[in-house]
Amino acid sequence: MANALLDIPGTVRRGEAFTVKIVLSHVMETGYRRDISGKPIPRNIITRFVATLGGEEVIRLDLTQAVAANPYFGFQARAETSGPLVMTWEDDEGVSYREEVAITVTG
């Protein structure tokens, strides 16, 4: 199963802000709904999303039921040296996901 759609530049200029765009594949089940037999559907949302660049934390998100399915996030980062952009996220069922993109710094 595809985890995410990534729109991330592989090469960036030193010290210049670049944009990271990511669409995460997730049902984001709120826990407020019931199935056809009336049984509550347990909550299953992404609870936390963390991105690090070269080991340093860039952004950390604590999510709630208010976020739609397959959420889209965009954020900006700045890099001084080349290194991996690592994004991890986990959901209520305890499943962890990970995506890594090498960022090369020029100039």
């Binding site: 595809a2 995410a4 759609l5 990534l6 729109d7 765009k21 669409v23 594949s25 397959n70 889209y72």
Partner: peptide
């Protein structure tokens, strides 16, 4: 954008 369209998942 094929990188934003969730259907691409």
């Amino acid at each position: 954008s094929d990188r934003l369209n969730p259907a691409m998942l």
